[in-house]
Every structure is written in C-alpha cells, then in structure tokens.
Amino acid sequence: MIFKKGEFFNGPGGIALGAKMAKVVDKDGIEYRIEHQWSNEIDESACQTYIHNICPDRPESVINKDVRKLDIEKDLDEIDAFTFGFPCNDYSIVGEKKGLEGNYGQLYEYGVKVLRKFHPKWFIAENVSGLKSSNDGQAFIRILRDLKESGYNITPHLYKFEEYGIPQARHRIIIVGIRDDIKKEFKVPAPTHGEGKLPYKTSKEAINEPIISVDAPNHEYTKHLDKVVEFLKYIPPGENAWCENIPEHLRLNVKNTKMSQIYKRLNPQLPAYTVTGSGGGGTHMYHWKEHRALTNRERARLQTFPDDFVFFGGKEKVRQQIGMAVPPDGAKIILEAILKTFANVEYDSIESKWNIDDLLLKNQLELVGK
C-alpha cells in the first residue's frame, strides 16, 4: 500500500527523507510505504535542497511560494497523507514568543485547510516544545481543537529525540492524526535509548564514526578571529562562555544575559544540545576538542542527515535549513509507527504525554470558571 504524501513548509526534507526510508511489511507480505506527491516551501534554497535529494525526477512537484498565496483548491493534487512542520518562530522559547499574534503563528491554519480539502488518511504536524506554553497555553489548545475538528483522532506527544537514538537533545511536539472513519488508534513508539535501555548516541560518535571525508559537501570550516580561538581554549567540553576559568581580558562584555548556548562546546560523552538554525556570534555549536565551530556537515550529522545529502545555498542558509529540520531518523521512527498502525503490526508503545480529550475539557472548564 502506498500513501501519496503532500507537505507544507518542507524545509530541506527531514520529514520527507524519513518518509522515503520508512517501510513496513504486514503478515501477508504487503509492503506499506510513503511516496512524495507535492510539497510547498517559501525558501528557494530549501526548495533546491529538497528537489535534489527527495524528488530530482519531479522538480515541478515542489512549489516555491508563500503558502498564503497558494491556491489550495486548484494548485494541489489529491493525497493520502500530509505532513507539516509549521514555522516555529513565534513559539520558540528563544524567540519573542508572540504565539498566534506573530507573523508566523497562524500559518498552521493552512495545514488545516489541506486536511479539510483532501481528507488524507493521516497527518503529522510538528513544532517546538514552546508551543505548549505560548499564549498561556491557548495556542496549543486552539491548534489541537482545529486539527481534531477537521475529522481526526489526534495524538500529541513531546518527543525527546535523544531517547530514540538521535545524537541530539532535541525536544519537539509532534501531533499524529488518523482520520475518524478509519477507526485505527496511533500509539506513541516507545523510547529505545536511555536509562535501562540502549546507551544514548553521543555527539562524538555521530561526528567521528565514520570520519567525514574532507571533500564532503557542506563541510567548510569557519575562519575564526585569533581572539575567538584563544577564548575557546579556556572552555572545557560541555561548558560555555560563562565558565569561571576564562581570563578577565577575554570575558564577554554582555549585560543581563547568559544564554547557555553561547560558545558552548559539545560534551563528547553525551548527545549534542539542540542544533539551531539562527543566531549570531557564539551560537554556531563548538567542537569538544578543536577550537572551532562545527561545520554544516557536522551539524547535519547531529541531525542524522547522511553525508550524500547535499544542501544548497550560502553557508548561513545551509545552517538555517539544517537547524530547522526534523531529524530524518526520528521522522522515520514515527512514520513507521503510523505505517504499522495501518498494517496491524504490533510495536512497543507508551502513553502519549497529553490526552486530547482531557486537555480540551480542562481548558473548557477553566474558561467557564473565568
């Protein structure tokens, strides 16, 4: 069985690559898999990356346009599945936290329009963990209600990707929806790594095993000022710009902020901290031993992109694409759980972090109480 997938906010193709890798065979030998049908993305470089790696034979299927200018009724073909990692800028804990009032906060509604137009069998919606607290929790509730009322049984969960073998502490809210009339229940796949399970995959393992070829794509080193190199020499693995042994003359002259990721080195014995797609000096992630920022290829390794996955655009554009993506290996785990649900294949599972009915009822009671 093939599910034809549409996608909004496709980025470089983290979810799409996970979808290409995901395959399940049922007890009768029938294979369940996912096939790209169309996608949409406003960023031209990300579209080039997506086309090159996901659908090189169908470049016209990737629509480079602001989703607000897309004619959902006319521009898109029928689909069986839909994925959308709607922009997180207004929900991120490091952003301005404008939530639904921000420029990007209501873009999820275009995904809802697709669900109501095409009624795909299932969908995945993804966003940052800060979505839960945005607008005093009302953004999360509104999004869940809109998705549910589009005709879906939904399962929201906070996935901690390091618990699934991803070499990075990346925590994301992922909402899986299965159409009401299908009468199948999605269950959150059980974590495989951590205490009492397999050991976490470390940043050192991800970057060094195997060694990255010197001519690998997107593997350009950053040329640092001598002062930055000298500064990094005083920062131990896992520490940042605020560690006590940095000499006074090298300390940062920054007031009222001590962001933990500023000039933070990786701890080689742990998963990396979260790979991000933006930020100024000192936010580029730093090697645990060498006195330099990571290359984009090293960041891509932490995000589980293979070395032959080529990113297009300038160095900062590539960094942005990598940091905004869903780790393909993490996406594959969730997508295969969906395929197993449809194929009636059992798998280890856990309770979702939130019960949708309890959340909506609690919110309704709180509103009545006000």
Rank of each mutant, 00 (worst) to 15 (best):
K148T: 13
K117E: 11
R145K: 15
I178A: 04
A81R: 02
S150T: 09
S92A: 13
R68P: 05
T49W: 10
D180N: 15
K148S: 13
E96D: 12
E149T: 11
D181Q: 12
Y108K: 04
G137D: 10
Y110R: 01
Y164L: 03
Y159F: 15
L76K: 02
G102P: 11
A139F: 00
E162T: 00
G130L: 10
V67H: 01
E109T: 14
S133E: 14
I166M: 03
E126A: 06
E162G: 03
D180I: 04
Q106D: 12
N127P: 06
P167L: 10
K160G: 11
D80L: 09
L100S: 14
L147M: 13
I51L: 05
K98M: 09
K74H: 13
L76P: 06
Y152H: 10
K98D: 10
V112Y: 05
V67L: 00
I72W: 03
R116G: 03
N135H: 13
Y91H: 06
I63M: 08
H119L: 09
G85K: 02
S61C: 09
P156V: 02
I143V: 13
K117L: 03
T155A: 03
D75Q: 07
I174P: 02
I141Y: 07
G99S: 04
P87R: 10
A169W: 08
F123A: 05
I124G: 03
H52P: 01
I178R: 04
V62L: 05
E78A: 09
I51T: 14
F161N: 12
K65D: 04
S129A: 14
F84T: 03
K113C: 07
I174M: 14
I141C: 07
C88P: 07
I93E: 07
I79E: 00
K160P: 07
P59W: 06
C55V: 09
T49V: 09
I182M: 11
I173M: 14
C55H: 01
N103K: 07
G111M: 11
V67D: 01
S133L: 12
N103L: 00
D181N: 14
I79V: 14
F118D: 01
D181V: 08
K74L: 11
D75N: 11
Y110S: 02
K117V: 02
I63N: 03
K121R: 14
N103H: 01
L147F: 08
F84G: 15
K113I: 01
K97R: 14
E163V: 00
Y152I: 09
G85W: 00
Q106H: 07
G102N: 08
V114A: 14
C88D: 06
H157G: 08
E109A: 07
D77P: 15
V62K: 05
F86H: 05
F123I: 07
P156F: 03
D80W: 11
K74S: 11
R172P: 11
Y91C: 03
